[in-house]
Design a protein around this nucleic acid. Structure first.
Length: 545
RNA sequence: UGGGCUAUGGCCAAGUGGUUAAGGCAUCGGAUUCUGACUCCGAGACCGAAGGUUCGAAUCCUUCUAGCCCUGCCA
């Protein structure tokens, strides 16, 4: 799927046409303080796809200007997720690579009388800032001389002052209705080891100051970000203008993409991991890209979802159906369609000779010859899905097996049920059927129509398997409750069942359509010849079910 | 009257003055089917509200309403 038309694409086309820019350069700038989640996919895909359309470039830039929150381990995880999505950045940068340059721009602002060292405490700065409806007051340190500011800033840089004792602030307008313009702090003192620059620096630029400069340094033409930065754009432009960067980038904002009941906040994701509600950021129930990957989602599906969802200046909430539909669309042509019985019910074919077995040759995917074919055993002892049998036909829409009814076993024969055995507790233990030799799959038999088609597995050759039927972690219930209590506690259900022998050597990560049971992927934790499958997504329900 | 952003069918979303307002998801009918899957037909909005400009407006203007963002030395 290609990117749909959207307002940013239009802007780029116009900029190119008018000669405002010569080429498109975008960037994806994550802060390395958590794993990427499905919400980030929109930003990643938008930046890369847009640049691709115009034969431009996209950088990956780690926005690491706050060493107290960031960690090198996240850098690797983020790189991996982006590569998984199929994107290869033109270059990988760190905001911290530009600390020297950023510092020089700060000095430049001081020299122009546009920045000053402020001794106000954090609380005082907050007080002086005013409120949403009242203007702020100017800092008493606002009019220090340029020389004094230069000396003080130099001293800040060389570690003469403790954390929080001083800041460098841009001198703009304490009465601005836009609070971001009320002399924003642009440098703060933090004595800590930075994951990239070690102890070389003890002053760190703020996002608002660093980001436009990073964009300028890299030659970014269209700096895309989310809606909450709209109010920051004037500041962005102010820094670009007054720092007189050789290159002038522009910021454009778009809305975030949410999924209902899904946790889309780094803070909460961290909480789930730290509290062991999940087994890690890549737990298959997590809405992280790593979680989706582990669960068996394909990057193509995520891309199609994001692209199909479009882009606008609205924070939108796309239904999970869209994501699942994108996944099914990808999987339906890419996966082998095989048989698995998740909740087995014994079937004995009473007129089939004991001890005999025959095999059916079946295509792995009737719509994709490239997937080859396999053999499927058939014999006297079979297993079918418990839900595919009812002692009596429940209603006229029933298209499965009942006593007195005949159904087709997919890729095999018609069977007719004539008896049911119950155990002591009244549960159905086993059913007895006869088969019709003339109805063998592929024989072209069409003398009569079966009541439906169900799938099966031959009991003596079937391979035991464990099915993880988990649901993604969803938030439910009272929004007042703590997050941990709102997470669906039964999100990981396990079933023991069987798969056909062809799957015995399935490889980790391989995906299948289990006919009538949905799509599954072989999980990482394959144990002792015992296959484990994660359910990725269910088949569409269809009418009457 | 702090500032900013947004408002198109259940959910996304094209559309930037001119035929019956694209498309996807979901839903509901129907056909087909060796998966009740897939596929294939068919069905739905007068564009937040009210005015106004215009021969003509979802697209321009006015007013109103609703939602979201902003008072980190976070990003």
């Amino acid at each position: 799927m290609a990117i749909e038309s959207n307002f940013i694409k239009t802007i780029m086309e116009e900029d190119l046409a008018s000669g405002k820019v010569e080429g498109i350069i975008t960037r994806f700038p994550p802060e390395p303080n958590a794993y990427l989640h499905i919400g980030h996919a929109r930003a990643i895909i938008t930046n890369f796809e847009l640049a691709k359309i115009f034969d431009g470039k996209t950088n990956l830039r780690f926005d690491d200007t706050n060493p107290v929150k960031e960690d090198a381990s996240f850098v690797e995880a983020i790189k991996e997720d982006i590569a998984w999505l199929g994107y290869h950045p033109e270059a990988i940068y760190f905001g911290s690579d530009y600390f020297e340059e950023t510092y020089r721009y700060a000095v430049k602002l001081i020299k122009k009388g546009l920045a000053y060292v402020c001794d106000l405490s954090q609380a005082e700065v907050s007080q002086y800032r005013g409120t949403l409806t009242e203007p702020g007051k100017e800092s008493p340190y606002r009019n220090r001389s340029i020389d004094e500011n230069l000396a003080l800033f130099e001293a800040m840089k060389s570690g003469k002052f403790p954390d929080g004792s001083k800041t460098l602030r841009a001198k703009i307008d304490m009465a601005s209705p836009n609070i971001n313009m009320r002399d924003p702090v642009i440098y703060r003192i933090i004595h800590i080891i930075h994951h990239n620059t070690g102890d070389r620096w003890c002053i760190y630029p703020m996002y608002d100051f660093a980001h436009p400069l990073q964009d300028a340094i890299e030659g970014v033409t269209h700096s895309l970000c989310s809606l909450e930065y709209v109010d920051h754009r004037v500041l962005y432009d102010w820094f670009i203008e007054h720092c007189e960067t050789p290159h002038i980038p522009h910021q454009y904002e778009f809305g975030r993409l949410n999924i209902p009941q899904t946790i889309m906040s780094k803070r909460y994701l961290k909480q789930l991991v730290d509290s062991h509600v999940v087994k890690g950021y890549d737990d298959p129930r997590m809405p992280t890209l790593a979680g989706f990957r582990r669960r068996g989602y394909t990057p193509e599906a995520i891309k199609d979802f994001v692209l199909g969802t479009g882009l606008s200046r609205i924070n939108s909430t796309a239904s999970i159906d869209m994501l699942e539909n994108a996944l099914r669309n990808d999987l339906i042509q890419a996966t082998k369609r095989v048989h698995a019985i998740i909740d087995p019910l014994k079937v004995t074919i009473t007129n089939y000779p004991e001890g005999e077995l025959e095999t059916m040759n079946v295509a792995n995917n009737q719509d994709n010859e490239a997937l080859g074919d396999r053999t499927l055993p058939f014999g006297r002892n079979l297993l079918i899905e418990r839900a595919d049998f009812s002692p009596e036909k429940p209603d006229k829409h029933w298209k499965r097996l009942s006593v007195g009814l005949e159904v087709r076993l997919m890729h095999a024969y018609f069977i007719h049920c004539h008896d049911v055995a119950y155990d002591a507790s009244g549960q159905i233990q086993e059913i007895f059927c006869t088969y019709d030799v003339n109805t063998r799959s592929g024989s072209g038999f069409n003398a009569r129509k079966p009541n439906g088609t169900i799938h099966f597995v031959e009991a003596t050759t079937a391979v035991p398997a464990t099915f993880n039927l988990f649901e993604p972690l969803l938030l439910e219930g009272n929004e007042e409750l703590p997050l941990i209590e709102r997470v669906n506690p039964h999100s990981w259900n396990v079933a023991q069942g069987y798969v056909e022998p062809a799957l015995e050597h399935a490889s980790i990560g391989e995906r299948f359509q289990f006919v009538r049971n949905g799509y599954f992927a072989v999980d990482y934790d394959t144990l002792d010849h015992h296959l484990i499958f994660n359910r990725i997504v269910e088949l569409k329900a269809g009418k009457g079910s």
